[in-house]
Nucleic acid binder design. Sequence first.
DNA 1: GCGTCCAGGTCTACC
DNA 2: GGTAGACCTGGACGC
Length: 302
Amino acid sequence: MIHSLQLPFPRGFHFEHTVYSHGWCALLPYRLDRTALQLRYPVQLSTTRIAELRIGPPRQSRPAVTVEVKGRLSEDHRAQLTRIASAMLHLDLDLQPFYRMSREDSRFSWMAQNRAGRMLRAPSFFEDAVKMLLTTNCSWSLTETMTSRLCETFGTVSPFGGHCFPVPEAIADSSEDVLRREVKLGYRAPYLLEMVRRIVRGDLSIEDFRGSSLPAAELYRELRGIKGIGDYAAGNLLKLLGRFDYLGIDSWCRAKYAEMYHNGNPVPDSEIVNFYAPFNEWRGLVMWLDVTRHWYGEKFPF
DNA sequence: GCGTCCAGGTCTACC
DNA sequence: GGTAGACCTGGACGC
C-alpha cells in the first residue's frame, strides 16, 4: 500500500541539487532511479516490518514523498518515516545566511542562484560515519563495493529488493576476520568493529552528534576520537551535521583546486585553507561547492 | 599473466 | 608538532 507524507520544506529547497550534492545517493541502501529522479530507501520499522521510502521530483515545488509498506501505517510509524525523510534531506538546515553571503561575491553567487549546498544524508549519523570511514584511502568504486557487501552481510533483506543498512548490533556480533575476509574492509575492519562495539556498550552516543549545540571545534575533537576518523573524515562528517568550519580536504579536492586555480600544479593545503578562510563558518561548504561547480553546469557524476 | 602504482587517509612510533 | 612508514583492496597500466 502506498502512503504519502507531508514534509515541511524550507524556502529555497532544491531537490535535485540535494540528491546529487555528493556521492551518498550512489551508495546502498539508497537506490536512485536516475530517469525518474526518484530516491528509494528501505527503512526497518520493526524486526519483521520494512517500509520503502520513495522521494521523487517536485510537484508544486515540493518533492513527492511516499512510503510503500505492506498493510496499514500507524501514526507512530508515519511520524518516524517523516522524521527520517526530513533528516535525509537535511530540511532543518537554514541556508539563507549562506546564500546572503554568497550573493555578495560574484565568484560564488552561483551557489545561491542554484540553491546548492544542502547535502544528502543517511537516516542516522551512524550510517554517515560508517560510509565516511569507507571512503578513506580508496577509490570510489571500492567504497561502493565495501558498502554493498556490508549491507548484504549484515543488513535485513528488504521485500522491496536489496538489504537495509545494518544496525550496530549486527556488526558488533561479528569479528574482525569476517569484516576483513567477507566484507573486505582491509585495515578499516578493526576501526569499524571498535566503533560499533563502543556504540553497543554505550560508550559512544553517536546519534547525539545530530542536533548537538556544542561548538564545531568540540564536535571535531569528538569525531577525531573515533578510530579511523581523521582530518578528512571528521571535516566531512561535520558538513553532514550542518557545520562547515573545516574543509575536509582530500586528494580529489586538492587536485581539483590545483586544476582550477594553479594550472594543475600542486599547492600546499595551507594555501587552500587561506583561500576559503574569508567564508568563516561556511568555508567548508564554499570549498566543496567550488570544486564541484562543474557538476552543476554539466552532469552530476553519480 | 605479473608487478607496480595509487586512489575522495589514518595511525603509530619516533624525533 | 611534525614526519616517515605501514596498512587493505582493486582497478589501471606497462611490460
